[in-house]
Simulated assay, not measured.
Amino acid sequence: MTKRRILYFSCLAVLLCQSGITFYLPMLPAIANDLNATAEFAALSLSLFLVGMGVCVMLWGRLGTTLGSGRMLTWTLLLYGCCTLLLAASPVDWAFLALRLLQGALAGGISVAARALLVEQYDGKDLTRAYSSLSLCFVLSLGASQFIGAMIATLTNWRMAMLLVALPCVLMATVKGLDVAAQHRVLTRRIGERPHLHKLIVQPRFILPVLAGGFGYSIIVVFSSTAPLLFQQSFNWSMWEYGLLGWPISIAYLLGTRLASTLATGHNEVMMLRFSSALLLLGALIMLIASSLLKNSAYAIWLPYCLMLVAQGMAYPVSLSLASRQSTGAASPAMALIALVHQLLAALTNLISSSVGTSPTVLVMLCAGLASLAWLATRANP
């Protein structure tokens, strides 16, 4: 299988696993009502998914080294599809939440394996561009899948929407996954080597780009978990209206990833990361000022958020590329370490958000704080 086909397969796998975060968000009120869930159900359903992604990533890193990234991607994608099928049949809220935890763990395996495949196949500016392509799938899961989820749930119900995520996962794993696992070859320089993770975690050139990308990722997670209820309750939006917001969100992130892919040369990534983090902070400051002046306007929140997504679309693939270059061993453990840091940051931020309540002020302050931390991380990067 060619590098391009491996890239396509990895991107589609990430698209399907990341849809576990955003696809069902417009349906959350309907799911909670159908399962007679408590008021904390919405926050728990996303938090457990993120916890599952973070808890098992180091295990996925070890398995990726032992089994190979291709095989691990195939099996985790198949199991993710089966888990989503069970979600569609959940009879009670506790079963739904337990399956969300398992689904998150499997999504973490997909994410680690897909990134490792790219590291094993690409280097330099090509790696940054490959990560930009991977980010395009994050774009679609971020916005377009949210819109599709709202449309399907409006026309049918949330259980049918879940089925439409599960079936492609199972089909891809059985038809294309075996081909990837059989034909994928790890680069010779990666075989049998294990990176020293304790050395990586204290290396500024590794951990600072990881933190910069993780703080930006946390902004997206907090906004995605808070905005559905916030916009429907505080601004009287319908589920359909919130689903439509997925398009400008997708376009904004798409623009950022295209800029990263176009401008990356293999030598200017540090400068690009600093610029994108400054743009992220600018978007947060605009959101802060606009929301204080226009307290009853949803535009004051989501339009600056789109600017922040342009910045994060640039920052995320660049930060992954910079961090990946610091590891000379097998790709899976290093990718697992990056995923662990990102998921811990996202889960912690989402926990803080859910504990202090849902309000425009809390959302804006969290976005501003996280953007400031991302900017500081890039300024400290040597």
Rank of each mutant, 00 (worst) to 15 (best):
residue 143 G to M: 08
residue 2 T to A: 10
residue 358 T to H: 09
residue 148 I to F: 08
residue 14 V to Y: 14
residue 299 Y to C: 10
residue 160 M to K: 02
residue 62 R to S: 14
residue 74 T to G: 00
residue 352 I to C: 07
residue 352 I to Q: 01
residue 20 G to R: 03
residue 310 V to F: 03
residue 319 S to D: 02
residue 37 A to Q: 03
residue 53 M to I: 04
residue 337 L to Q: 10
residue 280 L to S: 12
residue 60 W to V: 04
residue 302 W to A: 08
residue 91 P to I: 11
residue 163 L to C: 12
residue 314 M to W: 01
residue 287 M to V: 10
residue 202 V to T: 14
residue 97 L to A: 06
residue 141 S to Q: 04
residue 321 S to T: 12
residue 115 R to C: 08
residue 220 I to G: 01
residue 117 L to M: 13
residue 90 S to G: 09
residue 259 L to W: 10
residue 77 L to E: 11
residue 325 R to D: 05
residue 8 Y to P: 01
residue 341 V to N: 03
residue 329 G to S: 12
residue 91 P to V: 10
residue 239 M to P: 02
residue 55 V to M: 04
residue 62 R to C: 07
residue 70 G to I: 09
residue 366 L to G: 04
residue 226 T to W: 02
residue 217 Y to E: 04
residue 223 F to P: 04
residue 13 A to D: 06
residue 39 A to Y: 12
residue 41 F to T: 09
residue 191 I to L: 15
residue 248 P to Y: 11
residue 110 I to F: 05
residue 168 P to L: 07
residue 18 Q to G: 11
residue 245 L to Y: 08
residue 211 L to R: 01
residue 237 W to K: 11
residue 186 V to S: 11
residue 144 A to W: 10
residue 70 G to Q: 09
residue 24 Y to E: 06
residue 102 L to E: 06
residue 194 R to C: 06
residue 235 F to V: 06
residue 263 L to A: 07
residue 111 S to W: 11
residue 250 S to G: 15
residue 286 I to V: 15
residue 214 G to K: 01
residue 295 K to I: 12
residue 151 M to K: 13
residue 327 S to I: 09
residue 352 I to E: 00
residue 275 F to N: 10
residue 92 V to R: 11
residue 314 M to T: 03
residue 302 W to V: 12
residue 358 T to Q: 10
residue 343 Q to K: 00
residue 337 L to I: 05
residue 58 M to S: 06
residue 269 E to F: 06
residue 105 A to Q: 02
residue 231 F to D: 03
residue 353 S to C: 07
residue 110 I to Y: 05
residue 75 W to V: 15
residue 292 S to T: 05
residue 9 F to W: 13
residue 285 L to R: 06
residue 109 G to C: 09
residue 324 S to H: 06
residue 87 L to H: 09
residue 18 Q to S: 09
residue 53 M to N: 04
residue 63 L to A: 13
residue 132 S to N: 03
residue 366 L to N: 04
residue 115 R to G: 13
residue 316 Y to S: 05
residue 17 C to E: 15
residue 90 S to D: 07
